[in-house]
Computed example of a mutant assay.
Amino acid sequence: MAQNLISLHLDRQQLSAIDQALTTLEDNLVGPIVLTPQQRSWLVNICDKSGAFCR
């Protein structure tokens, strides 16, 4: 059974600062990601094995 053990309340200033930080990251982390077929296959396999863990 899942329990929500964390309670987090953010005010407008905090949300605005977070939004600005995410925008900065998105602006600076641009560029294509080129994966080989082998790398893509490996990522699919990893997702299958760790999917339940990540959820």
Rank of each mutant, 00 (worst) to 15 (best):
L35W: 03
L35C: 04
L10T: 10
S7W: 03
Q39C: 03
P37D: 04
R12M: 07
R40E: 06
Q39R: 03
V34L: 12
N4F: 00
R40V: 04
Q20Y: 05
P32S: 14
D48W: 11
N4K: 02
Q38A: 14
R12N: 06
Q39A: 06
L15Q: 15
D11Y: 10
N28S: 11
N45E: 13
N28E: 12
S41V: 03
D11Q: 12
L25T: 09
L8N: 03
D27W: 06
L10Q: 12
G51E: 08
T23I: 06
L43M: 10
S7G: 04
Q14L: 14
Q3K: 01
A2G: 02
I6D: 01
T36E: 01
I33T: 06
L22V: 13
V34D: 05
I18M: 14
V34E: 09
Q13W: 07
R12L: 09
V34G: 05
K49Y: 09
N28M: 09
L35G: 04
L8K: 08
H9I: 11
F53H: 10
H9R: 15
E26Q: 14
P32K: 13
D11A: 05
R55W: 05
A21E: 10
T24C: 10
S16W: 05
N4R: 02
C47L: 15
P32G: 06
L35S: 04
N4G: 00
C54D: 11
S7Y: 04
D19R: 11
A17E: 12
Q38N: 09
A21D: 06
P32C: 06
D48G: 15
I33W: 03
D19Q: 12
T36K: 02
T36D: 02
I18D: 04
I6G: 00
